[in-house]
Design a protein around this nucleic acid. Sequence first.
DNA 1: ATGCTTGTTGGACGATCGTACAACAAGGCG
DNA 2: CGCCTTGTTGTACGATCGTCCAACAAGCAT
Lengths: 205, 205
Amino acid sequence: MKAPSPHQPAFRRTHPDARRLALIEACARVLARAGAAGASVRAIAVEAGVSPGLVSHYFSGIEALVAATYEQVEGAVAATLDRAVDEAGHDPRARLDAFVTASFAPAIADPQLLATWIAFWSLVTARPAIAAQHDEQYSGSRARLEALLGDCGVAPNEQRRAAIAVTALVDGLWLELCLSPGCFSAEEAGDIARRFLDTLISKDR
Amino acid sequence: MKAPSPHQPAFRRTHPDARRLALIEACARVLARAGAAGASVRAIAVEAGVSPGLVSHYFSGIEALVAATYEQVEGAVAATLDRAVDEAGHDPRARLDAFVTASFAPAIADPQLLATWIAFWSLVTARPAIAAQHDEQYSGSRARLEALLGDCGVAPNEQRRAAIAVTALVDGLWLELCLSPGCFSAEEAGDIARRFLDTLISKDR
DNA sequence: ATGCTTGTTGGACGATCGTACAACAAGGCG
DNA sequence: CGCCTTGTTGTACGATCGTCCAACAAGCAT
């Protein structure tokens, strides 16, 4: 079909970091489209426009690629939330509200995004290294939330528990919002979460 | 190895319902042990002590078996929670507390139990029938919670939202408790959830 | 005891999986 | 311009997957 140029390059070399990132993004797209069951080496290679061998060349296996994809996507989500917090100005409570509101925005509460989480969760129980990665990213996320809560006047000795509670409520709402988007709306989820924040913050005032 | 009896039965016939249940229980054990990735037709057949062909004979495929397993396990969990509620006596608040406390008991907040949920969740997005099943079981669970909340004096027009909130908080805590059991304890999770119930119930009193 | 129903077996089948490796070529360097 | 490094290809391999179906036998009915 294609008229071959005198010397059309069959492929292009890429910086290892860029190629690695491209494979991660392709993995995320495949997970979003086909779910964890459809995320095979070949499907990801086709999605990235490379040969299957490259996946093995950059990652020790599918699990390592899924772990790297989770790390990447989780980082992107955290960055989106941080941006929403920063854009909320300097009022501590407004920043906290922005955090939970952004957590249910279409870009975050996305069923296709859930697929990455599920694929990662399915590895947590069996693989200690994956479990350690999960613990690390969870504690990082909780630390950011503890800071936001502290700015709102939550006592230091209550921050840990409050952050666990808020994370659980937001994650639970997020999960259900992804699994059955028609059950309740993102606005309702935000209202529920913000009302819960009221009870945490006004408690010791 | 085995000295064959004059007529040792090579297999035993079973009531279709009993065999079906045995396959479901075998599926749950395989999911708990090997995760969603290891739940193959053959592995489940070995676990159940039957030949691989039987799985196809009773279920249209692996997905149908996973869906049936989720339904069965979810029903068992609901029954356990209902029993805990009943054993709590007649005081409405004590019944509600028993519900959340039992939700984090070792038998429920079990990493191996999470595997069944993850395997089921991984099918929700792609398969409309699975999504419908999830919606149905979620709304059933929420209805029971609404009744418990109503007995505690939550106004009818607030019951839906309160039940969504409690479900999300409990599920979020349960999920994290399963994923990293060392992060916080079941007692802490129960305390967080019960404290949240305080804010919902004492509100309009 | 004998036949019949049907639950059950067990292997065949093609598809797809992850992995590995030798050959190839793109692109920078001398 | 031609060599060299190495990112990339493409395929072969064995394992395992889900599905299917003809043959078998367990246990009830007669």
